[in-house]
Amino acid sequence: MQSLPMTTMLGSTSKLIMYENFWYVINPSLFRNVLSIQKHFVVKDKDIFIAGLPKTGTTWLKSLLFATVDRTNHPIDKSLLLTHHPQELVYNLESDVYNEAFVYPRPNNLNELPSPRLLSTHISYTSLPKSIKTFGCRILYICRNPVDMFVKKREINEYDQDSLTLPRLEDFFEDFCEGKVIFGPFFEHALEYWKISLEQPYKVLFLKYEDLKDYPSNHLKRLAEFIGMPFSPQEESEGVIQEIVEFCSIKNMKELDVNKNGVINNFFEKKSYFRKGEVGDWANHVKPSMVERIHKLMQEKLEGSGLSFKVLP
């Protein structure tokens, strides 16, 4: 660890360490967990992963994925999502499975999970175990407009777990632009998965939060086909796709009792995972000069990639 670059976030006590060009928190043991995953995780061909930076819509996507996979076992009115938070049904590798720092309902052995195993990670594609990249498992990657994403991350105070106060918006913005975000930099993280989705479309399905919000039924149908569990013509005619979309909507999920009370990993309130879910809410928080700077940064980072986000009218 002493040989790796380290930094401290502005206006914060959180220390980050750079490993394979991405930032991880030193304390708690996030960095060590990533190393454990690389060394010990054994993938299965039918595994399905959700990947993406925090606050990009991963919890919502977990709901949609679980309901789609579980539809042959439970109708919506008997879904396990009525009694379990999505984070308790789709385990995060670095925060749940390989994290000894928290007491959390989880399997002692990943082999106990039914097939296909539904798992998630915020780790960059570079730092994934080699087996995930080479075996036949599937990855659903979700990305979000960078301005919305950085506003949402600040709102729930994931920036500094030791502080009870929010970091100054200006400080958080500077860190974001410099790439100093947990699991980031943002653009490099997204670009890795984007390029793999183009090179190996059977391996990675790249989803944008904004597109999923605008056309949820279309993208849920794509998701089901990608994971090898397409909706049948009968299911479509019976409205199963729309039923799942409405049940897993952020509006509905945040009203379920199971998502209102309690905490995840002894720290994050369950209700914090389902907030406004709005697209473009950043306009109520971010100065025009900040938007312009991110727009220029986005042009620089994404030029020639084919990936884009709308941050200016």
Rank of each mutant, 00 (worst) to 15 (best):
M1P: 09
P5H: 03
T8F: 15
T8K: 15
T8M: 11
G11T: 04
K15S: 09
K15Q: 14
L16H: 06
L16E: 03
M18Y: 03
Y19W: 13
W23A: 02
I26L: 15
S29E: 05
L30S: 02
V34C: 10
V34W: 08
S36A: 15
I37K: 08
K39V: 13
K39T: 13
H40W: 14
V42L: 13
V43N: 10
I48H: 04
F49G: 04
P54K: 08
P54T: 03
K55T: 02
T58C: 12
K62W: 05
S63Y: 00
L64K: 10
H74Y: 15
H74E: 11
D77H: 14
K78I: 05
K78D: 13
T83M: 06
E88Y: 13
V90K: 01
E94Q: 08
S95R: 11
D96Y: 00
N99L: 11
A101H: 01
A101Q: 11
V103D: 06
P105V: 01
P105G: 04
R106W: 00
P107H: 01
L113Y: 01
S115M: 13
L118Y: 02
L119E: 02
Y125M: 12
T126G: 08
S127G: 07
L128M: 08
P129L: 12
F135N: 07
I139A: 11
L140T: 05
L140N: 01
C143N: 02
N145T: 03
D148E: 08
K152E: 09
K153T: 12
R154V: 10
E158G: 14
Y159W: 12
D160W: 10
D160G: 08
Q161Y: 14
D162E: 14
S163M: 04
P167A: 10
R168K: 14
L169T: 01
D175H: 02
C177H: 05
E178L: 15
F183H: 09
P185G: 08
F187Q: 00
E188S: 13
A190L: 13
Y193Q: 11
Y193M: 10
Y193W: 07
L198S: 08
E199P: 00
P201C: 10
K203A: 09
V204P: 06
L207K: 01
Y209H: 09
D211G: 05
D211S: 15
L212Q: 00
D214T: 15
D214N: 15
L220S: 00
R222A: 07
G228V: 02
M229F: 15
P230S: 04
F231N: 00
F231E: 03
S232L: 02
S232Q: 00
P233L: 03
Q234T: 14
E235C: 10
E236C: 13
E238F: 12
E243P: 01
I244R: 03
V245I: 03
E246N: 06
E246R: 06
F247I: 02
C248F: 07
S249D: 01
K254L: 04
E255M: 14
D257W: 05
V263H: 13
N266M: 15
F268W: 06
K270A: 06
K271N: 13
F274V: 04
F274H: 01
G277I: 12
G277E: 02
G277Q: 01
E278S: 15
D281W: 08
W282K: 06
W282N: 05
W282D: 04
V286S: 07
K287L: 14
P288D: 06
S289T: 08
E292W: 11
R293M: 07
M298Y: 03
Q299K: 12
K301P: 04
S305E: 11
L307E: 04
S308Q: 13
F309I: 06
L312I: 12
